[in-house]
Design a protein around this nucleic acid. Sequence first.
DNA 1: CAAATTTTTGACCGAATGGACAAACGTTAG
DNA 2: CTAACGTTTGTCCATTCGGTCAAAAATTTG
Lengths: 210, 210
Amino acid sequence: MDKKAPRRRTRIQTEKREVILEAALEVFSAQGFRGATIDQIAEAAGMSKPNLLYYFKRKEDIHRTLIERLLETWLAPLRELDDIGDPMTELRSYIRRKLEMARDFPRESRLFANEILQGAPRIMPLLEGELKSLVDEKVAVIRGWMRAGRIVRTDPYHLIFAIWATTQHYADFDVQVRAVLGPDRGGDGRFEDAARFLEQLFLEGLKPRG
Amino acid sequence: MDKKAPRRRTRIQTEKREVILEAALEVFSAQGFRGATIDQIAEAAGMSKPNLLYYFKRKEDIHRTLIERLLETWLAPLRELDDIGDPMTELRSYIRRKLEMARDFPRESRLFANEILQGAPRIMPLLEGELKSLVDEKVAVIRGWMRAGRIVRTDPYHLIFAIWATTQHYADFDVQVRAVLGPDRGGDGRFEDAARFLEQLFLEGLKPRG
DNA sequence: CAAATTTTTGACCGAATGGACAAACGTTAG
DNA sequence: CTAACGTTTGTCCATTCGGTCAAAAATTTG
């Protein structure tokens, strides 16, 4: 009747799990869940397959861990959208932060996109729970701004979707963006160009009209 | 020295290939290339696997055919963006058409998104060739409108990206959109809401300022 | 140091998968 | 009707893949 007390995590375990997650992010984000193989991840992590499976019993466990972690980082910018600040400033920094995440964490963005594209089989509850209630909360904030006449009246849900879509586009559709822009315009400057454009689009579009 | 003349396609061949492509679209768009199995496609097409392989020698052939076809339909709305019309009207109908495609052909959108997400291994040349030159052409048109002061000056490339991103979002991230909107707001009306929002966002944002 | 515990590995397994093939079955044109 | 051609299927194969296992190697603990 004595259940095994969940042994504490070793130093090596902590380190190796990190290495594996990093490798898995690389592979999953590029190949999707089914496209990725344990062998690929093990190779990228510099260890043998059975060794990897010693740290994560199943392929899905790695994926789940990765996605749960991701979601926190992912929603952080929206959490920071603050009631008390100036609407325009708040929205500007939200857009900026999201675009920076697309630039600095494209693999995370693609991992997420892959999961949603496949119908979110592994994170539906999170979308309907945590994500929905966070969005609802921020929608209320935005509605407040609209009622106060500080930004133009429009659909706050679709506003948020539009910000998500346009910013994440630069991570998820990166190859297409680069192919279209070509070698000259598609260089490192593309994120600054995008930032300028998106600020203009959203902020001019939302300015209250007299 | 006599090479086999490529035999003409039978009536049955024409029909069955169509059935297979329809089934494959369903499966590929939901599972991605590697996630989809020939068996699944065969089952969805109502035939045995060897039978399916009689019409398409390899899994990749089905996928390639599907994507090549898709690209034409996909770019049609952009092709119609016309120099001579009124800029606002032209852009409004472009946005409308793209959103209608997201609503009516979500599987095609997801098939495409999947391919790009994986790094576009099978269509890179098309992106750098046909797609890029079409975009370049339309960018010139938009630049013309800007020079004439008929719409506000901004980056035409990123404008096009933003239209792509926001409209396709409703197909590619459908499950997320629905989860966030909930059962009431997420019903059939979501596309009309999106249309209203996007028109306001883009058209107000682009109106020339006096 | 020695015992106990954790980590690593090679070998292996069953299921799934992409694909080949020849034989059987249908269809069509002369 | 029948020969030629097109279509369908059952069977089979090699490979890949997720995962197991026992034993060896390394590390930690007393």
